[in-house]
Design a protein around this nucleic acid. Sequence first.
DNA 1: CGAAGAATTGAGTCCTATCAAATGCCGTGG
DNA 2: CCACGGCATTTGATAGGACTCAATTCTTCG
Lengths: 240, 240
Amino acid sequence: MDRNLTRGHDDALVGQGCLACGTRSFSVCAALSAEELELLHGLASPVRFDPKEPLLVQGQSAPTVYNITSGTVRLYILLPDGRRQIVGFALPGDFIGLSMRETASISADALDSVTACAFSRMTYSALANSKPFLLRRLHDTANQELALAQEQMMLLGRRSAEEKVVCFLLAMQRRWARIGLASVTVPLPMGRQDIADFLGLTIETVSRTLTRLARDRVILIVPDGVRLVKGDHMAMIAAA
Amino acid sequence: MDRNLTRGHDDALVGQGCLACGTRSFSVCAALSAEELELLHGLASPVRFDPKEPLLVQGQSAPTVYNITSGTVRLYILLPDGRRQIVGFALPGDFIGLSMRETASISADALDSVTACAFSRMTYSALANSKPFLLRRLHDTANQELALAQEQMMLLGRRSAEEKVVCFLLAMQRRWARIGLASVTVPLPMGRQDIADFLGLTIETVSRTLTRLARDRVILIVPDGVRLVKGDHMAMIAAA
DNA sequence: CGAAGAATTGAGTCCTATCAAATGCCGTGG
DNA sequence: CCACGGCATTTGATAGGACTCAATTCTTCG
């Protein structure tokens, strides 16, 4: 039942100090000094989620904030009739639940085996209040996410299926690169249906588009990912 | 050239103190005390924009932050080939440019005659740093906007044309209500093309959908707005 | 009153969704 | 080791909703 230990973050890190955390360099925690990290470590509890296990449930209270240390999480909104829109994927270094108030506005669950640092929201916001520059950094992160969401709105509202898929693959490549996994081979821990629900398409259209790109030698489909063969050509399509 | 003084915010307020500002009660400024408002007033310059005049240009530096006091602003992203996605409309009380860093990630221009309070970003962020609870409130606002953006992603990716239009009308009603204009008659200061670019539709589809709703006596189309005749029926469609 | 822009309406097409079936992929158990 | 079952993905055929192109009507304003 542990087949999902896919990519290269060492689970053994969980439980060790924040200082040793592999995601520190690119997470919010990068803003903290060594002694502050010690303090933070005292507030954090390492947790683990199995595939499909929920971290957040839309409409329910969200007293905990998570900093993902390994694995991938999908964030989504559900409509009463079952339609789903994935609003983002959280990778190692990303925070989850920061933007929630009384109740969560979105749901989140683990795509594969996920490890994270859990903070009680109360202690966390107390920390933020006592360290203005941390709040500042949190605010900047939120604004960055907002810009990202707006870019996604453009993608959802105005781009064709092929553009959507190409943009998605390039964006995933960039994100993996940011956390030290730069490569033409892009891991895709999520299933086709997840990609479809993220891009506002059906699973069939995603599948067809990917196979067409593969047939045209733009990408190469590999187990749990794709290889970007003509990255520059894809960039052309994305820029369009 | 001043035909666009549409709705009821008194332009004479511009230039008076922040204390007298009609938007104070529902804007970020509500977090400030009387003396802090005095301080704020010293930093603010009243400005006015004519229809189509830009407040922000995607890719250019954005050294100024605006707090809209009257009128409506559209926020949008442009693709090189001309496709446009409107990511939001700013109403009185809303801030613009807060989330920008070195260069603006979106463009913004006035839909009608717009008045606003302008702050230099530098002095504004200095103020925010010295008043943690203001930064806090700014952060909360940003998170609220993020939740709104995610809701919009659901709308763009997973809803039908009719649902999009109905949701849009209900959302506009709510927003006008929040700033003291509660009514079944919803003002629509933006054109059909703007609505289309906001909902990820074409102008023809928006027009057809509106006329169909009007034919079915769900709404009544009036100059510069619509009257929501069957609000509860619309709520059903939106909830779905 | 007439021109220009905005909005509506109409006809036809295309892209993507839908429905349905086949194929591939693993993990299980014989 | 291989057959089996369940699930994810791919592939095919068809339909439909929204788009495109084009023309008309409605507004607004000089």
